[in-house]
Design a protein around this nucleic acid. Structure first.
Lengths: 340, 340
DNA sequence: GTGAAAGCGCTAACAA
DNA sequence: TTGTTAGCGCTTTCAC
């Protein structure tokens, strides 16, 4: 039933050529080679249903495997990026290794090392920026692409969104809707570009309006920090209507149930907005104002960047190191608020 | 800066032994080998910071890579299972290849073939059951574990939850809460055990109560089928209170906004329940009644099953082929309804 | 345009 | 207990 594995040898024998010729066909069929043998080999490969042994190829340098390293593969942002990377790679005949660091720098280091040992052809990662030296070194040998969090590393490309600008726009949109004060809820910045820039965008919008920023640092999975946010809101929310703007969707998921507990009318008394567009955005009543990150495009671009460098189409150091794809501000339709 | 790659040869030379001995140390350090050489090799490995070349090992049969094949890697169920598989494998020094089939049997076939060509040591998959012959064949050579969807294939293990029982319990719970009629919303069964069994559980509960089942088939991403559900509800929901029970969380995510449009009081006039526990379950007011699948445990068990077979701890055909991990019925606390 | 042959780094007989 | 050796399937000089 199951044919014994057919190797390049079998193909060579059947086609009456040497394995070297078959190998050449496999790698650069376009180059010098008589049409006849080309066709002959092609036929045999089909007839024998031959597939090159990837491990053997890998041993010689090309594993046709890319790795993606993220903080947590269950975060909606990561899920979506990983998925579109997978699509692009699958199309190109590459496989995708998925790993997560849990925001742990040492884990990230170990992981990267082991991936290199595995001979992956390239790495796409959402890094916490503690292993930039290693990455720079690796970038000389293989394509390294950073997503989400920007870091300036020689030879390393970044694929990110316009966090600052989008955050500014969201904040400004909330002001336009009439909210007097906007509470910005974020995790500790920790030198991460995403957080820093969203924060900066928020501050700018406040500054422009001459409104005092109101920032609250929250830590996910810590109910006390979440409760602290609530307390701040209760204390300082004298001047209604005010809005609550979380720096990412995961924060909002934790905070939202508590906000409901405030028994304020949304959106009249309290506005609710978040960076990210949670999949449950359609569940809340009314729909939340949010920032849709181009996760699909980010993944695609990251994957294609890796593939291009692998094909040698691109000289590593000549290209700009940052590719920015803008996010989209998704406003809750004003009609919906009054209609429903 | 970056040391040239150190191989088993270097270790052998430095330690004054043959590469075979080093290889033995690497693979079965426990077996016969003098303490002295063991220590010597150990030292050299540390000093040289040697890591076996995995591609070379792979060529000889052990890639230390497992693949997980799911329908869609962005489905919450899949995400969670994949993540816990990843944790277990990472711990064991294995890497995880992630792929998706998009519910396409041909794609699945191609994928499995390519994974085998890549030399993965084992495969965990959520299959649509169209390639069972191939799987049975493969199971003779490598560990194959099915998750979520059960199929009886010689040599293949299943890790699933008690879909029928859990569905029965959920339905029964709804009846107990006083709903006179329960509308079951599902995708086409298509021979998938998950759907079939949830359906069966629902039917049993209805039969026991002597209530006529009310089933509606819906297709995701098709608004017309979703609308059809709504129409059914409007027509047949004369006898309130009634409940709506979707066979999975994704269906509910699409349906929920429309249900809100009915302007019925929840839970007094309409009950809302779903298989799966969506991450937004805490967002709805009141909390939805749902079935929490043990995704974490399913992933863990699947991964461990593969690892065990790889270690040879287990004879493939002697073990029972189905491991069932029960789901948990999560009732919306009655207090919450009245209190808030 | 094609073939012969030398490895890539490792494992596993088979010897010793 | 350890060493010698023959590959695994492929790529890649270097000849012809």
């Amino acid at each position: 039933m199951s044919e014994k594995k057919v190797t390049i040898k079998d193909v060579a024998r059947e086609a009456g050529v040497s394995i070297a010729t078959v190998s050449r066909y496999l790698n650069n069929s376009y180059s010098s080679m008589s049409e006849e043998t080309k066709i002959r080999i092609q036929d045999v490969i089909q007839r024998l249903n031959y597939h090159p042994n990837i491990m053997a190829q890998a041993l010689k340098g090309q594993s046709r495997t890319i790795a993606v390293v993220v903080v947590n593969m269950s975060y909606p942002f990561c899920v979506s990026v990983i998925r579109s990377i997978s699509e692009v790679l699958d199309e190109a005949g590459y496989s995708l290794l998925v790993c997560e660091t849990g925001e742990n720098a040492e884990k990230e280091l170990t992981l990267i090392r082991s991936l290199v040992a595995r001979g992956v052809d390239g790495i796409i990662l959402q890094t916490n920026g503690q292993n930039n030296d290693l990455l720079q070194e690796l970038a000389e040998t293989m394509p390294i692409v950073l997503v989400d969090r920007h870091f300036d590393i020689t030879g390393v490309k970044n694929v990110i969104t316009n966090n600052e600008e989008a955050s500014y726009q969201l904040t400004e949109a909330l002001f336009k809707e009439g909210y007097r004060r906007i509470f910005f809820i974020s995790e500790e910045l920790n030198g991460l570009s995403t957080r820093t820039q969203r924060y900066a965008g928020y501050q700018q919008a406040c500054a422009k309006r001459g409104v005092e920023p109101a920032v609250c640092w929250m830590e996910r999975r810590k109910t006390d920090t979440c409760q602290a946010v609530l307390n701040l809101l209760k204390q300082e929310s004298g001047e209604q209507p005010f809005a609550v703007y979380t720096a990412n969707g995961l924060l909002m998921m934790e905070l939202y149930p508590l906000l409901q507990g405030l028994s304020l009318r949304v959106p009249e008394q309290m506005g609710v907005a978040t960076f990210d567009e949670p999949d449950w955005a359609n569940i809340t009543q009314p729909r939340m104002t949010c920032v849709r990150q181009p996760t699909h495009e980010i993944g695609q671009l990251a994957a294609n960047t890796v593939l291009e460098r692998l094909r040698g189409d691109i000289k590593p150091h000549l290209q700009p190191s940052v590719q920015m794809i803008p996010s989209v501000l998704v406003l809750a339709p004003a009609t919906e608020r009054t209609a429903k």
